[in-house]
Each structure stands twice: as C-alpha cells, then as structure tokens.
C-alpha cells in the first residue's frame, strides 16, 4: 500500500474541489472519495489503486432515503446498502432492488457499503487485481490477460478485444431495470445522468468505466415510480449459495394488463461489462402473453449478441435460464 493523505470534508463543495485536482475520476485517480471503503481499500492494498489523497465524505449529509417527485424514491449516495435493502418503500415498491442488494456480499459488507460506492464497484477480474499480469483496465496498453486466461466469470456481452471484465454489482442491475437517474455535483455544478448513459463499454478505453469527470460527486440517485400493478424480481445464479458474485442474474419489472405484458424492463448481471439493460428482451415481451415460450424467446433475444470466451460459454445458456425463470417468477406474482 502506498502512503496517502486522508482529509475529511463537511461540504459537497469542498469535496468536489478536493477531487477536482485529480486528472481523472477514473482508474488511477490521484484523489479518491472514500465512504464505506469496502472496495477501494482492497484495491489500495493490492496496489491496483494508488491514490495520493483520500477524501472522506462520510461527514456529508447524504444518507437519506426519501420520497421523490411523482411517487419516485430518492436514495442518498451515502445510504448504506443494508438501510436501502430494508427500507419499507424499497421492499414494497421496488422489491427488485431489495432482493438484488441482499443477494450481494455479506451482512458486514452491506452494513458499510454505500449506494454510490456500489454504483462504482470494480470488476472481480483476477487479472485486474493482480499487478503481476497485464490488464488494460488497470494499466492501459498492457493487454487483456483474461482473454485466453482464467475467464470463467467474465463478461459475454459488451466486451471488446481490450477488456472482458464483468460488472460485479447486483444493485446496479436492479437500478438499470428501474431506470434510475444518477445525480452528480461537479466542478460545473449539478447535473443528472440516466443510468443507461452512466456506464461506458470498455471499447478501446477500458480504464474509463463511467462518464464521471474530475470532481464529480454522486450525491443521490432517483428512481421513478413504477406503473400501478407492476411487479419486480431479482434472480441471481452463482457457484455458492451466499457471499459470491453472480454468474448470471436478472432484474425484471413487469406489468400485465388484459392478459398481456404492457410494461416491461429487463436488466442482466454477471454477463455484461456494464449492468446490462436488454431492450431486445423488452421488445420481445411487450404486448405478449406471459408464457414460458415467450420468456424463452425474450431470453434468446437478450443473449443474441453474446461473445463467450474460452471458459464461459455456459453463461449463454445459464443467463437464458436465469431470465426465463425470473420472468416466470415475476409473472406468477402478478
């Protein structure tokens, strides 16, 4: 671990100012915000992140979970994962988010981890974490060791020949299906980013994971209200039963009317380089009757562009079954 300075801030402006001095908000930032520390500290110990300065933002008043306009929900950046998962409104209105958060990590980690921290959670690619290997995300231009290496848990959607790292978060898959908006305060003031535009595909610049710029501080997210009668569900498939990242997961939101699906959102985890919203699956389901065959067709559509690696070809079928089953579950509730 490299030496670093730790400062505390008590205003958003001070926080933004402190981080603005870093040339980037992405991989290799010289100044990093720290909240729960459940992810960043690990990477600092491994010399994967070597910030010279940490800005402790735990003193900022960003923990609230409260109603937003038009029946939506506002979740503070520093709301702990546990508090979000067990919040009454989340459990009753957006169960997909509660289920997703509770399927991730462990109780102890969820007690510390924050909403915004989880939003920026790093990949679990073993090569990203081991500085003895090349990794374009960690050190641009050093090659992708996962291609042709240990890639069983890596992505099959949204990959490039520079990076196949999967996004490990469960929360973010649910937020993608809920069409959340990320609220940011930066050097130029406040702005909002739809989650669909928040994450960047690796392409030729896998070190850039989000659109965040130096100084940008996520202050909260908002989730719009779901149509009355909509149901949501999260299904996660993995090697062990708990404390393990998804091999495939599915977040689904559906409303049926007159025996047909008239509102649907689908996102998948464990398979994409980013939380994977599948408009293809949604299109396949819109206006259709909830039948196993239609679910399977949607799953086929969702995985249509999958590009498996040497060890993770099974994820294509697993993800299809995951989505099919999640759709069956959510419509059974309806």
């Amino acid at each position: 671990m490299h030496p670093f300075d730790l400062i505390s801030v008590d205003s958003i402006q001070d926080a933004v100012k402190a981080q603005s001095s870093s040339p980037t908000a992405q991989q290799g930032a010289s100044v990093r915000y720290i909240a729960g520390g459940t992810n960043l500290i690990d990477y600092m110990k491994l010399n994967v992140e070597t910030p010279a300065k940490l800005v402790d933002i735990n003193g900022l008043n960003l923990t609230a979970i409260e109603p937003a306009a038009n029946g939506g929900l506002k979740i503070g950046a520093l709301a702990r994962n546990t508090d979000v998962a067990y919040h009454d409104t989340v459990k009753t209105q957006f169960p997909v988010l509660s289920l997703a958060i509770l399927s991730g990590a462990s109780t102890q980690l969820r007690n510390m981890a924050t909403t915004a921290g989880n939003l920026l959670q790093k990949t679990r690619c073993v090569y990203y974490r081991d500085t003895a290997y090349g990794c374009n995300k960690r050190q641009p231009g050093t090659g992708c060791s996962a291609i042709g290496g240990h890639n069983r848990i890596m992505a099959i959607l949204g990959t490039s020949d520079k990076c196949i790292a999967s996004n490990p978060s469960d929360q973010n898959v649910a937020l993608a299906a809920l069409d959340a908006t990320i609220h940011v305060t930066g050097a130029k003031g406040e702005h909002t980013i739809p989650i669909a535009q928040f994450y960047l595909l690796p392409g030729n610049t896998p070190e850039r994971e989000t659109v965040l710029e130096p100084g940008d501080l996520v202050t909260h997210i908002t989730i719009p209200a779901l149509p009355s009668g909509a149901k949501s569900y999260y299904l996660k498939l993995r090697d062990r039963t708990s404390y393990e990242f998804a091999l495939a997961s599915a977040a689904v939101v559906i409303k049926q009317s007159g025996g047909r699906i008239d509102f649907v959102r689908v996102a998948m985890g464990g398979v994409g380089t980013v939380p994977w919203r599948s408009h293809e699956a949604e299109k396949a389901l819109q206006g259709k009757v909830a039948t196993p065959a239609n679910f399977r067709t949607a799953a086929e559509a969702a995985l249509h562009g999958a590009r498996p690696q040497s060890q993770n070809g099974f994820k294509v079928e697993l993800a299809k079954r995951c989505l099919t089953h999640a759709l069956a579950e959510v419509t059974r509730q309806a």
């Binding site: 073993v126 081991d130 290496g149 240990h150 090697d239 062990r240 039963t241 708990s242 404390y243 393990e244």
Partner: peptide
C-alpha cells in the same frame, strides 16, 4: 490465479 478467499471458493454457512 484464484489465490484469495474471494476467488478460491469454500463452502459458507448457506451451503
């Protein structure tokens, strides 16, 4: 290459 308790998976209580 999976030389950590996160990547070398042992059974947990839920298993």
């Amino acid at each position: 290459i999976n030389a950590s308790l996160a990547d070398y998976i042992v059974a947990v209580n839920a298993d």
